[in-house]
Design a protein around this nucleic acid. Sequence first.
RNA 1: GCCCCCAUAGCUCAGCGGAUAGAGCAGGUGCCUUCUAAGCACUUGGUCGCAGGUUCGAGUCCUGCUGGGGGCACCA
Length: 585
Amino acid sequence: MVKALVAALDERVRQAMTTALGVAAQRVDPLIRPSDHADFQANGVLPLAKSLKADPRQLAAKVAQALAADELITSCEVAGPGFLNLTVADSAISTQVAARLGDPRLGVPPADTDNVAVIDYSQPNIAKEMHVGHLRSTVIGDALVRLLEFTGTKVIRQNHLGDWGTQFGMLIQYLVEHPELRAHAEGESGSEAISRLNALYRDSRARFDNDPEFADRARRRVVALQAGDRETLEGWREIVAESKVYFEDVYDRLRVLLVDEDAVGESFYNPFLTEVAEDLERRGIAVRSDGALCVFFDDVLGPDGNPVPLIVQKSDGGFGYAATDLAAIRYRVQTLGANRILYVVDSRQALHFKMVFETARRAGYLPGAVEAVHVAFGSVLGPDGKPFKTRAGDTVRLISLLNEAVEHARRTVEAKNPSLDPALLPRRADEVGIGAVKYADLSTSRTRDYIFDLDRMVSLNGNTSVYLQYAHARIRSILRKLPADAANAGVHARLELAPAERRLAMLLDQFGATTQAVVESLEPHRLCGYLYAVAQAFTDFYESCPVLKAPSEAVRDNRVALCRLTGDTLRLGLESLGIAAPEQL
RNA sequence: GCCCCCAUAGCUCAGCGGAUAGAGCAGGUGCCUUCUAAGCACUUGGUCGCAGGUUCGAGUCCUGCUGGGGGCACCA
């Protein structure tokens, strides 16, 4: 594993500060940052000068003196109020490239191997179509899973399906009364499954609204379901199974990692709900209020000024989702062994999670050492800035959105690259179109509302997945054209680097720090920004540094190495976001 | 009324407490006998919502205000 340049500089400057300024400097962060004025700058002298009541420029000069030029640092100059501008040796940069080259992890060590993260995302509802609202949770969650795994965290995916509730009474009752609807074709496609479910939902709803006797039977069916009646459960299982056929189709299409084993729906926690409620009530954490079992908080009040509770158990004895969430926390901590629990859920649920987490803390279900985070994201809005709806005012089906994106991508790929083998076109259109949708979602900061503008995201310009895929494809194209013996040549570290070469190489060196920052902040858009910067730096390099026609074999070897490492960085980065990196566009 | 999120170029958005605030789109001017022009170079465009504060240093942190979005008792 390779130490990044920033880390090496941190060590060297820290040392020099201690040498020059004594023990007072020992614990001071040298604050090494990439710089516009040099390769890096160290800002750490300024705060130190303040605490020593000394002239920062003088202190900086002493540190600069202690930093004798070596194989890492070629120059160190005092600038501004007391910055240290650091210039790094070309050979050190090339050595970094050589050290990362060919490693599947690009030389980045897995840093978080002791952590177990449970991540709860996607959460579609059984018997219902997935819509744009599920897009962000699914896509962001998937990216976080991949990045957490990359940093060494053990990740347990949990798809908290909405697979329980009163609406099932209606569906199951209708199914029982119309056995012909139960015909379930073997090898049914996802779209067939969801259209059957849609029809079932539509027809049973209509019947429920228009036929009071049916409505009564449906209500009794809810009771039967909760009581575990065999015939009723059978109908429920059928509906769940059919929904999963559809979900897996969508997940497959979206290229996310979720599989059936990750589906742990609300119903899974049913056996624990009574126990949780009793536990909370017995210990006085929850109290009865208007017949409901409630947890109150000093700082949660309604519009009337009265406290608003988290309702663990409804006055009719039924359980709401608060009870399920509490049982889930207990399970995730005690059984799954999580020390980090992430909920990738719409930001509108903020208050709910605040109350659930607080309750779980009081109850000890969430020990102090375990972190629970609501990874909130903003709403998906239409181009008009209002909640995204079809012209008819309906929610937009996720799958129609994806179809549209892929179709758009297909037309573009066809137009831009007529030489592409037509047999490859559908797959390429899929990789480009789905990637564009996912990237558009991931590249904007999570907490903000997000305007879904298909034209923009598949416009294939600027900070989009296609720009990254294009840069990657260009690299692969160069590497394919290389003479066989040149593909794996080493790095000549003593060769001087062109400006575009060193900028690119130094950026590549930050991959590990970037993934680490994403995993800590849970903000995938930082990785997007980084990859975009890499792609831009590569394009700059591409314009000014010919590879196949390099002035010498040694220069070509170095450029090949840069191409390989850039390509691998882009591919690993895109894959970490759940986006394909085709060899060719 | 209370709580959460947001406010940066005409538009959509970046910007880990560091020096002159950046992209893309839109507008203007150039660049394909040369590794993919899905690209590049140059150019036009800013009281970082307002007011205080912390700091050697604030778009970034804190407080208040204004404006926008969302949430706040038995639906999930």
